[in-house]
Design a protein around this nucleic acid. Structure first.
Lengths: 231, 231
DNA sequence: GCAAAAGTGTTCTTACTACACCCATGG
DNA sequence: CCATGGGTGTAGTAAGAACACTTTTGC
């Protein structure tokens, strides 16, 4: 077989990207989902997605789709899985590559999201979704849990400056269990990957809590020492 | 936009699967790689792969491709990652979904593999591969290491009956470090996921070593107790 | 002065690490 | 009888889990 027929003989497929967009606000993990605009399943709840174009990688397609609904670029994004069942999309055979993104919910373009019919919902509020999108969310949550344990990705969900209480309640949300306040502080501070700021946050207590900032250089130093971030 | 044009307007892509096939033989981790038959890059070393057909899922395509070269079905296989860069394949734009497979090297159909120009090579013998296949192997090794630590997948690479020394040397290969004999035995036996057989294997010692067999039911019992397999 | 969240240490238990000798057997 | 790999136990150390009170300050 020559090269031309090798490639020419092979079938072509629609390839989509779907984004599981996590945010953290008011102490709760949230997901950005939207109401589908086209048939089949128009009006039903769905993840944010789109087709991969000729001139873009799947990563680029996911970033484009994300920016279209949130106005954000340069955000943390990870490929989750490629969903390739023949009948997963009832409108046509579509292979979908799913990505999960972690965004600072305060930073996103709220009017733009509204315009696209997108809404932030807490995990327990998520309605039934089209196709295999429910499974995608389930898988993304599992991946987020695994990933958060050994990589400093939690910080992607918090504002740049945050208190230890906020950080702890984020991990409590991710792991769905309460964490001992003293042990958590001891552990995260022992890793020495954050800078302690002079400023205090007084929005949630009269005493005020110190603000911290994740320091990528300190994290690199930790890795150079051969130690692993684990929380 | 109506449904017809929504799907019709989207571009279609060639979608391939590539398999990183791990085996374990003579105390060494090995990979099955082959010499490519078609241009471009004919004759160069490559992973085993093929195009996803209209009527099969990506998982099915990977299983088909694997069976074509090894004669084996019902083998352990995991999706690794979808590689979607525009120019990753120099012959055409091809999106590739990579899978890694763990096989019992003794069981595969050797003549069939030879017929396809496939060879088992140790990790340090792997030549430069076409496209991004080298990166795929790197990623697969990292995934194998992560996965082996918390899931009982090592057993997929060993014969049904194996000695503790074989099991330990497999983990030494995967982790690329020596493991203390006594601590390893203590740890793996404490998990209680293997059945100790009466038979002994005398091929590598005069005294003979007890054979063990992985017991999926014992593993399920471990999980029910809320404990995690970790080695 | 009191409510509400911030901040702080110690003890106990458990799991991992390091380490060296005897055993059984085929040749 | 000896060379070879199989098999075993203990002591020290480090990390995680459990747990309660004092501090600050706005109202």
């Amino acid at each position: 077989m020559n090269a031309a027929s090798f490639y020419a003989k092979a079938p072509k497929h629609l390839v989509a990207v779907d984004c599981i967009i996590f945010g953290f606000d008011e102490g709760r993990l949230k997901l950005l989902i939207m109401q589908r605009k086209v048939a089949p399943m128009a009006g039903e709840w769905s993840l944010v997605g789109g087709f991969v174009q000729e001139d873009e990688s799947t990563d680029e397609a996911a970033a484009r789709v994300l920016e279209l609904t949130t106005g954000l670029d340069d955000i943390y994004m990870n490929q989750l899985h490629c969903y390739g069942n023949v009948n997963r999309d009832t409108g046509a055979r579509v292979i979908s590559v799913a990505y999960y993104a972690l965004i600072r919910i305060k930073n996103h373009d709220k009017p733009l999201a509204r315009e696209h019919g997108a809404h932030w919902l807490e995990l327990h509020e998520i309605p039934e979704l089209i196709f295999d999108h429910g499974k995608m969310i389930e898988d993304a949550l599992a991946a987020l849990r695994n990933n958060a344990q050994f990589h400093p990705i939690g910080f992607e969900l918090l504002p740049e400056k945050f208190t230890l209480s906020q950080l702890r309640s984020l991990y409590e949300e991710i792991y769905r269990k309460t964490l001992d306040k003293r042990n958590f502080r001891k552990k995260i501070l022992s890793l020495d990957v954050m800078e302690k700021l002079e400023e205090k946050d007084k929005t949630s207590s009269k005493k005020g809590a110190h603000l911290y900032r994740f320091d990528p250089e300190k994290y690199e130093a930790l890795k150079r020492k051969g130690l692993v971030f684990e929380i």
